[in-house]
Design a binder for these strands. Structure first.
Lengths: 223, 223
DNA sequence: CAAGCACTCTAGTATTCAATTGATTACTTG
DNA sequence: CAAGTAATCAATTGAATACTAGAGTGCTTG
């Protein structure tokens, strides 16, 4: 084997990982799988793909060792293989921030200007997480909250927030978070809360970023 | 714009970055561009692609904002856009290590068992880099050494090493490094040096990893 | 300003990939 | 063990991508 054949074989192997993240649907899968484990039907429903198509994308992610699967009866539960897989998605996201032109245009077209929401970063939030006058609010769907959440966070999925406003004290500051920096749930929650007179901000990132940074997490139990 | 259209547009944008790293040749380009800036002909020669083909791959990397270009007369000099681009390649490489089965098989088929070469990590090397009885040896091609190297490193490209053994003192320990963990130059150097009775090891990573970790680097000048 | 050079673009072809459809497998439960 | 369900596989279609060859662009130099 010559130098060239060696390099070709090596880079071809790495490119299998690259190919795995070359599809929009597979990137969305990674973002979802970072929240909790999902079975194929759930993922297909969440992303509006057919089950067969979702399954095939999952095979590709699995072949690249980005996700792993656990079988339980009829169900196949997929999850991220490890932190490295999430770091790859993080690296792509961070590069996306450079592409401000396109991505910011897309985000703003949907959300308006997010800077007004005064995002709070992880370390600042960590420092204040025990404060009595601060409520950390997990606005993701309940299964994702159950699979892991910020310490002391309360769960109110964004769709139920309006109906459950009574559970929140107007004298407390609220920090909402969701799946990640490009997830809109927390933005929608902050917008609603602010309109109703609450002092609300969003955590700049999401639960998986918090977790992969090695910060403390809580599991189980609805508050 | 509905939730789904928003997400589709967003992930499609991120997938452009994923697609850019879905090709073996483009990954090799990233590895090379992390060493120094190259013009199109040089890259095409190094990777044995046609100039037109290399140019097209570079356009794709540029569109994904992974590389930037500087024009000087007839020449177009390409370089990595920033550290984030290298971190993406790092993330892919680290995931590759999980795929031990295939990649290790490829590496071993070419290099034999590398564990015998006793790699030294960055922090250990940093601690000993001033030692009188330690020589840090950059075995990459000279232009890459000139574009930046470890502090105090001496440049002997691996192809010239055998002829220039007289420049090395047998009583000094030698740490060789090259482009990165999957570059073979340092392995070949260590193999040659060990066979000739020198005490030689390889740095576990490469110059770009050292640099992106924020460790000190030197530029210019051949020693 | 003509010739040479580095690079890029355009077309054309071969290949690979994505999504759909329908069939099949693997497991569970009555 | 038959029926039902979740997931996967196989085959097909159309779209996207990779590579080549040749033309074209823009800069430099005699």
């Amino acid at each position: 084997m010559g130098h060239r054949e060696f390099k070709d074989a090596l880079y071809a192997e790495f490119a299998r990982i690259g190919k795995a993240v070359a599809s929009p649907h597979r990137l969305e899968f990674l973002d979802l799988l970072a929240q909790r484990e999902w079975n194929v039907e759930e993922l297909a429903g969440e992303t509006q793909l057919t089950v067969a198509n979702a399954s095939q994308h999952l095979q590709i992610l699995r072949a690249a060792k980005l996700v792993s699967v656990r079988r339980d009866g009829n169900y196949a539960y997929y999850r991220l293989a490890d932190d490295r897989a999430y770091r790859l998605w993080q690296a792509i996201r961070e590069l996306g921030e450079v592409r401000l032109a396109e991505i910011d245009r897309i985000v703003r077209a949907f959300l308006g200007n997010r800077d007004e929401l005064e995002p709070i970063d992880a370390l600042t939030l960590l420092g204040r997480i025990q404060d009595e006058d601060l409520v950390v609010l997990d606005v993701r769907p309940i299964p994702e909250y159950q699979a892991g959440h910020l310490p002391g966070a309360r769960s109110i999925p964004v769709g139920e927030l309006e109906a459950r406003l009574g559970e929140l004290r107007p004298d407390q500051e609220i920090v909402a978070y969701c799946r990640g920096p490009y997830c809109v749930y927390a933005d929608e929650a902050v917008e609603l809360l602010t309109a109703r007179g609450y002092l609300a901000r969003r955590f700049s990132h999401g639960f998986p970023d918090w977790q992969v940074a090695g910060l403390p997490v809580e599991r189980e139990g609805i508050s």
